[in-house]
């Protein structure tokens, strides 16, 4: 059972990107707008816990991951790692201890690998730049171990290969090996299998779950696939237009969703078991509104099949609907 002391905590995290105003707007003195990519998120991840972050494209999942890995700077809220405020920390040397413990797996493995570096260089890069090894023998040893842990055996065969000489699944494993090489305590995985074939997906998932089981590593698993989130995660957080609309245990969210958006997500997921137990609500119409124009009141109300007056005026707070299960909907009670 995972140890539940929180390793990471996000407190009302907010990322707004300024919109470039046109000349016209400036002349007319229109206020500069903002893309509210992440709009106040509270989330905690326990040690050795797997949390899935689920949402449509454009809902802000990647931005959350980029804030945690310090690739984007939040415009509000706090990022706490083991209780320490990391929000303002900057610069590659100041961040070194943090980088040592928090790593990321990218969505598109091919893009994430420098085409001119060999697999060895790629996996060795974090060890070199974080100064985790003293000599070449140690380096080679840790690179081999990381490759083996990511399921690339025999590791030596891959040392001198270039990314284009690997299959899609192997490339994703190289990215994973690079993240593992530093033995992090938290990994942010941004849609790590969405670019992969079904037949390879499960292999990568297995590697990730094994890491948690063997090294008590925590994982933030970003995906838009609800069944996949259910399969791998302990808890699922559902994101809509930059805000968490529901959060709870994987089983609760999958079998007992309390937010109309989560229900819609579940209904939209194609399933081989047929339509049993679905279509409780009509399918969602329209598209996610732009994050530059977040609707007033409940941000889901223009698409919600259950919307009523109050939804248009007041934004619902997260409401406790079960043990550890919150839903931001006026009807959740």
């Amino acid at each position: 059972m995972p140890d539940t002391a929180d390793i990471l905590r996000l407190e009302s995290l907010q990322v707004h990107f300024p919109i470039q105003r046109g000349l016209f707007d400036r002349v007319l003195g229109r206020p500069a707008g903002a893309v509210r990519a992440v709009d106040g998120i509270d989330l905690n991840i326990g040690r050795g816990e797997i949390v899935a972050l689920v949402g449509e494209s454009g809902s802000g999942k990647t931005t959350v991951g980029r804030v945690i890995t310090k690739l984007a700077q939040p415009t509000g809220g706090r990022l706490l790692f083991e209780g320490r405020n990391m929000t303002a920390e900057r610069g590659s040397s100041a961040l070194r201890p943090y980088r040592h413990r928090v790593q990321m797996i990218f969505q598109d493995a091919y893009q994430a690998l420098n085409p001119r570096h060999t697999v060895f260089d790629i996996v060795a890069e974090p060890l070199r730049s974080l100064r985790l090894v003293d000599n070449v023998t140690q380096l080679a040893e840790r690179v081999s171990k990381a490759l083996a842990a990511a399921g690339l055996n025999p590791a030596g065969d891959f040392f001198s290969r270039f990314p284009h000489e690997l299959s899609g699944g192997q490339r994703q494993r190289v990215v994973i090996a690079g993240a593992l090489a530093v033995k992090p305590e938290l990994i942010i995985a941004d849609e790590p299998v969405s670019m992969l074939d079904v037949s390879i997906r499960a292999q990568i998932l297995q590697v990730l779950v094994d890491l948690r089981d063997k090294h008590n590593m925590a994982l933030l698993f970003i995906t838009h696939d609800l069944p996949l989130a259910w399969l791998i995660a302990d808890r699922i957080a559902v994101l809509y237009l930059g805000k968490l609309v529901e959060i709870g245990s994987a089983d609760e969210i999958t079998f007992n969703p309390r937010h109309p958006y989560t229900v819609a997500l579940r209904n939209a997921t194609p399933q081989i078991g047929g339509n049993a137990g679905r279509a409780v609500l009509p399918a969602l119409q329209g598209e996610v509104p732009s994050a530059a124009r977040v609707p007033k009141g409940c941000r889901f109300h223009p698409r919600c099949p259950l919307t009523f007056d109050r939804c248009k005026k007041e934004e619902p707070p997260p409401i406790e609907v079960g043990p550890q299960h919150l839903s931001a909907c006026w009807l959740a009670k």
Partner: peptide, 8 residues
């Protein structure tokens, strides 16, 4: 596409 658009 994401699941909801895919379904549409």
């Amino acid at each position: 596409l994401d699941v909801i658009t895919q379904a549409q």
